[in-house]
Amino acid sequence: MDVHVRGSGAVEPFLAARDLLETEYDLELPVIVKIREDPDERTMAGHYDDRHELLVSRRAATSAMARELALHEFAHMARYEEGHPSHVQSTEEALFLALAGRSVERRKLSQCYQIANHMKDIYADDITLDIGPTGKLVDFMESSLAAALAETPPPAPGEWTHETASADPEITAVNAAFALALLERHGAIEEEHRLYDLADAAAADAPGVSLSRFKQHFRSLVEDPGESEYRKALVEVTREYTLSGGTRAAD
């Protein structure tokens, strides 16, 4: 597995992630890592005929999670090369099937793509949690959910739900379900962990979203699905989300 790091920054996290991946997996195509100044996009991976590319902000490349983030993206590349349905099927096609004949607001549509990415992440992290340490990931998910909850203002009097550009309660609840599902899937979290309390708080902020149902959607994804099986799972979770909390006309 060839990894080439371009830009000003340490190469060690990426080489360490490569070494971890190579204990169980390999990539046929080389990986070009490009470190850039833009801090807004933590990581972004692209796949081409002759290479994979990983764009990483300098902030992410120098963070305590740099190796884990790189390993996560390398795992996505491994899933892509093996032709896993979650990584080669068209997300747009599945969402079209799920939403045909329905009017969905732009906010929820963009969040459906985020949910589809969660499903990809489940399969990528089946690799990372199998070969790498889990402690940092658990701490990262806990801090991320806590931050999202802190950004969500209390509801106005008489209102059940509230929305902000920074922290939408409905997708925050789904994100909590994803975190628990992933960690439970690999036995990486204890029953009394604080993440469960944070997830309950997220669920309370979004009473129209079933934390348990979305957790079951993510946790029960089969390891090696066929194309139609994976498409069906994505269609089901998309339909459930667009119906949660009520629906409104598209923007």
Score class of each variant (00 low, 15 high):
119 M>W: 01
195 L>D: 04
153 P>W: 15
130 D>A: 10
196 Y>V: 14
152 T>Y: 03
150 A>C: 07
201 A>L: 05
197 D>R: 15
139 D>S: 15
184 E>T: 01
143 S>H: 13
137 L>T: 13
104 V>Y: 01
141 M>I: 12
133 P>F: 09
144 S>K: 12
135 G>T: 08
148 A>M: 04
132 G>A: 12
130 D>T: 06
112 C>D: 03
197 D>C: 11
199 A>I: 08
185 R>K: 14
195 L>G: 10
113 Y>G: 10
132 G>N: 01
108 K>L: 07
160 W>D: 08
147 A>S: 11
182 L>K: 07
121 D>I: 09
122 I>T: 14
123 Y>T: 08
191 E>T: 07
124 A>I: 05
184 E>F: 00
154 P>W: 15
106 R>K: 02
119 M>Q: 15
163 E>V: 07
175 N>Q: 11
168 D>S: 06
199 A>T: 05
134 T>Q: 11
148 A>N: 02
121 D>Q: 11
120 K>F: 02
160 W>P: 01
145 L>V: 07
200 D>P: 04
106 R>M: 04
167 A>K: 06
145 L>Y: 03
179 A>V: 00
141 M>W: 08
180 L>R: 10
146 A>Y: 03
127 I>M: 04
109 L>V: 10
141 M>G: 04
182 L>A: 06
193 H>Q: 13
174 V>A: 03
192 E>R: 04
111 Q>K: 08
196 Y>L: 11
107 R>N: 04
110 S>N: 14
174 V>P: 02
163 E>C: 05
186 H>Q: 14
117 N>T: 09
107 R>K: 05
165 A>D: 14
185 R>A: 07
157 P>S: 14
165 A>H: 13
107 R>Q: 02
199 A>Q: 06
105 E>L: 06
170 E>M: 10
137 L>G: 04
153 P>K: 15
115 I>H: 05
146 A>T: 07
165 A>C: 09
110 S>A: 08
126 D>V: 04
111 Q>V: 02
142 E>T: 15
195 L>R: 13
149 L>F: 09
190 E>F: 05
194 R>D: 12
134 T>A: 13
169 P>C: 09
106 R>W: 03
141 M>A: 10
151 E>A: 15
191 E>M: 05
129 L>W: 01
190 E>K: 12
194 R>C: 06
172 T>C: 06
177 A>D: 05
120 K>D: 00
158 G>W: 15
171 I>L: 08
108 K>E: 02
201 A>H: 05
111 Q>C: 03
119 M>P: 01
139 D>V: 14
194 R>Y: 12
200 D>A: 15
167 A>V: 04
109 L>R: 09
134 T>S: 11
104 V>A: 00
